[in-house]
Amino acid sequence: MDKNQLGIQYMQEGKWEEAAKIFNEAIEENNADPVAYINFGNVLAAVGEEEKAMKFYEKAIELDENAAAAYYSAGNLYFNQERFKEASNMFEKAMKIGLQTSDNYFMLAMSLIQLEQNRLALPYLQRCVELDENDAEARFQYGMLLAQQELIDQAIVQFEKCTELEPEHADAFYNLGVAYGLQDQEEKALAMFNKALEVQPGHPLASYVKKVIEQGEK
Rank of each mutant, 00 (worst) to 15 (best):
Y10D: 07
K210H: 00
D64W: 04
V35G: 02
K93W: 09
I61N: 04
Q200E: 12
I38V: 08
E214G: 05
A53R: 08
D64Q: 12
L205Q: 05
R127F: 12
K52F: 09
N175I: 01
E198Y: 14
N66R: 09
E17G: 04
N31C: 05
M54H: 05
F40H: 12
I97Q: 15
Y174N: 00
V47L: 07
H203M: 02
G75T: 12
L77V: 13
E137P: 02
L44M: 10
V212M: 15
S73Q: 10
L146S: 07
A45D: 00
D153M: 04
E187Y: 01
G14T: 02
E217S: 09
A32T: 10
S207R: 08
E130V: 11
Q126E: 06
Y180C: 02
I213K: 12
Y142H: 12
E217Q: 13
K55A: 11
N4Y: 13
S207C: 07
P34A: 14
G181F: 04
K85P: 03
A170I: 04
I61M: 08
E86R: 06
A121P: 01
Y174H: 02
Q154A: 15
L99V: 07
G48C: 02
N39L: 03
E28I: 12
A53E: 15
Y57G: 01
Y180I: 02
Y180E: 01
M11R: 14
A94S: 11
N104L: 12
Y72F: 12
L176K: 03
A74Q: 13
V43M: 09
L6N: 01
E62D: 06
L197I: 08
A121L: 03
Y72L: 08
K55M: 11
L165R: 08
Y180F: 12
L77Q: 02
M144A: 08
S88M: 15
S73C: 10
A170E: 03
G181S: 09
G202V: 01
S207K: 10
D132R: 15
E198Q: 14
A70F: 09
Q114F: 11
L99I: 08
Q154P: 13
I38P: 01
G98R: 15
A36L: 05
Y174D: 00
A67R: 05
N194R: 04
E92K: 14
